[in-house]
């Protein structure tokens, strides 16, 4: 999966969870800009875990504040050996 593809899927998940149109959610959006509070945040992570069948640890979850954080976090989890960006390019 390319980085772009992953970003697209994350944008779709967040837009759907927040009942926003997809164009409102960009790769550069922060949670604050999108009005995502702590409860919305864990709800989004739940949707992400379900979509990618991954488990996001609590400690990692606490550092996620933007669309980019979500994308990079998933990339890392999908390939912990390689680290974020490299894993998605592969």
């Amino acid at each position: 999966m390319s980085h772009e593809e992953l970003t697209e899927r994350v944008r779709r998940i967040i837009a759907s969870a927040q009942h926003l149109t997809e164009d409102k959610v960009t790769a550069d959006s922060t949670f604050a800009e999108l009005g995502i509070d702590s409860l919305d945040g864990i709800n989004i992570l739940f949707a992400v875990e379900s979509e990618f069948n991954i488990n996001i640890p609590d400690d990692a979850a606490q550092t996620i504040r933007s669309v980019r954080d979500v994308v990079n976090g998933i990339a890392k989890l999908l390939d912990p050996e390689l680290g974020g960006q490299a894993a998605v390019r592969a």
Partner: peptide, 8 residues
């Protein structure tokens, strides 16, 4: 657990 507020 899903609330992410239980201590490890």
């Amino acid at each position: 657990e899903a609330m992410r507020i239980v201590s490890p």
